[in-house]
Design a protein around this nucleic acid. Structure first.
Lengths: 215, 215, 215, 215
DNA sequence: AATGAATGAGGGTTCATTCAT
DNA sequence: AATGAATGAACCCTCATTCAT
């Protein structure tokens, strides 16, 4: 579904990479609706070059998202492999996700990428799969409260990944996100007094909701 | 300061209220840059009617913000007066704010509203003032962890107020927000293991950031 | 063509007059495209009252123009009757026309009022007719150079009647118009060295041009 | 001061020139508030092309004004250098300005252009300076009446530059303007009977009026 | 292959005109 | 009869996308 591309010439490859990096930055700063010309300018190329690499906004968004999902998957793997307990791995993973900032494109991702996009699905499912295991294990270990789902973990990360509105400088904003994540992590620990109300959703629930929408 | 408006005709009043309600909803769903025509359509009026009531986007934005701030202030007062402990009052207040649910936009609004707008300042300062007291008292009572600030409380509410991206039905989205708030509240309780990193900001810090911006 | 109106009630008559006066002022200040709401506000009535008296902008413009044309005709009559020579009468008439400021609506008048508007035609033709006589007589008297036409006189008045663009205060602008008229009058006197080039047009020429335009 | 523009591509240069020419024409015909879409249509381009060359209405207006001022300055220089007497040079200059024919808009433009725009100031001051000399010399020579100012000359040109309202074909309109200019020139000659009333303004007076406006 | 230029569609805002009180 | 409110059409400007060099 996403193969068959012959390798790009070296300079073209460079351009593609620079555009992707610029897009990541600009999306984080201005949101996923930022003017594409801003992106090409930051990448130091003409707008037409951007369009040669990415046929339209959706393709660019998808590429940024795919990249982020792959990094996310790599991070969760590494966390699982490196850390002594599932809970510690989960904590490390969550902080890394904030750094990757997939939240910047997540809304568009959910709304516009076709369900059967293989590369995307693969990266996401691999990442989610491992995260799901970490959640289960941490609950078995008695470290993570039993009434949260891996869907909660994902959604909380989305909430934290979006930049705070307002005139908060970028660096400070990132520090705040990590601070608030720490706070949430303390709420995730086992032994909390109250039971959680509200719906306990999984990623599969979210996916099937999307498929129901006729929009 | 409410500049000498004579009472509107009944039908005009109705329209104004409907437009305000529609704006609240649409801003939450689409962000504060949403097309004004979407708002007027949802209110069931023509676009020019919206403009007759609110001379430009800023005026409408301000009205939505003011309304939300006033409701918020009323809720925090009621919570303080009705509930047995400061912590319980704080919890109730946070859930109510999610229902008012407009938190997501108001930091953005504050950027666009002149610093010396009296009605806005009054409503905000009253609300924040009481919330600050609740935070302090709950910490003295030993119910709230000592390393969170009232700024954290406000910002967490902002994060929770934005609807999750994707095709999640509105009602479910609200239930999720309350669920995640419960989780966060458990993280706010005293006696948590880890210390919070990151900057401990107050509302005054946020305000002074705004004043520093050259924009 | 413009009779048959039964006399208005006294207060309605008042409103009509106030609106007409306001329109004259506003057209002079803002040009003939000024917002009608500005006019009704200056007249101290609601916009709907204006529309009750004048079904649309054209009707209002026409009324202002008719009023100005009638005053103009009256002025030229009075000048002819009062002054000792045709040239002196012509000079007086020209200065009076500047005060009446018909130029403010003249463009619209020429472009939008139907050719067969009787009241308009009558007032204009009476005024032009007398002016034509004055021109002829002044030329016979040897006071006015023989190569100008009454069309030139009319067109020069139009040029002088339009307000100078830019930030010139209204009063000063009027004084300047009279000053420049004095200068032009000196150019109109008999005994000038050069012959005039260019087309020597009459009002009838202008009228027939209009009728040719398909626009 | 010409902000570092690299030379445009040939086709873009063509478009720019065509848009500028179209703007000149349309502004003269419809006034400086004419729809920009009319201008782009007359230039044979899309509206966005106009906006690519001129970021907003002000920039276009400024470019038209600058172009006219530069041509005017060139004409007055050439007239001064070529003609035997100052008066003859002045006469030639005035006729040339009518051909440039943009006088009608530039006072309005000057309102909208920052006082310290160097290119504009330079072109204008050079042109006005030479014209001022011509006026003074012609008066010393006894050819020009002593009671007119160079401000009068400029303002009369503005009045003549605007097209007559109504359906007068463009060519005829230009011939009329030259005819009326001849008439005015005869009024400007020395030895005229009447003294001029009204305010004798200079360009500096007009400029200071602009600076006084609180608008 | 890379670039800058051109385009059309969309959203903000104003105003002439019609409608309900 | 008089008023204020509501409406749609027009114009400004921005941006995603296509085209010519």
């Amino acid at each position: 579904m996403a193969t068959k591309e012959r390798p790009l010439r070296a300079d073209a490859r460079d351009n593609r990479d620079r555009i992707l990096a610029a897009a990541r930055e600009v999306f984080v700063e201005q949101g996923p609706g930022a003017p594409l010309e801003d992106i090409s300018r930051r990448a130091g190329t003409g707008i037409a070059t951007l369009y040669r690499r990415f046929p339209d906004r959706k393709a660019l968004t998808r590429a940024v998202a795919l990249d982020a999902l792959q990094r996310t998957r790599d991070e969760v793997k590494r966390a699982r492999d490196d850390e002594p307990t599932a809970f510690v791995a989960l904590v490390r993973y969550m902080h890394r996700v904030l750094d990757i900032r997939i939240g910047a494109v997540f809304p568009v991702l959910l709304e516009e990428i076709p369900f059967d996009d293989e590369e995307i699905s693969t990266a996401r499912d691999e990442g989610v799969g491992i995260m799901k295991e970490l959640v289960a294990t941490a609950q078995e270990d008695g470290d993570l409260r039993p009434d949260v789902t891996h869907g909660d973990v994902g959604m909380l990360l989305v909430r934290l990944s979006r930049p705070m509105p307002g005139p908060i400088p970028r660096e400070l904003g990132e520090e705040l996100a990590h601070r608030h994540l720490d706070l949430i992590i303390d709420g995730l620990r086992a032994g909390r007094p109250g039971d959680l109300g509200g719906p306990a959703l999984t990623f599969d629930d979210l996916r099937s909701m999307r498929d129901d929408q006729p929009t």
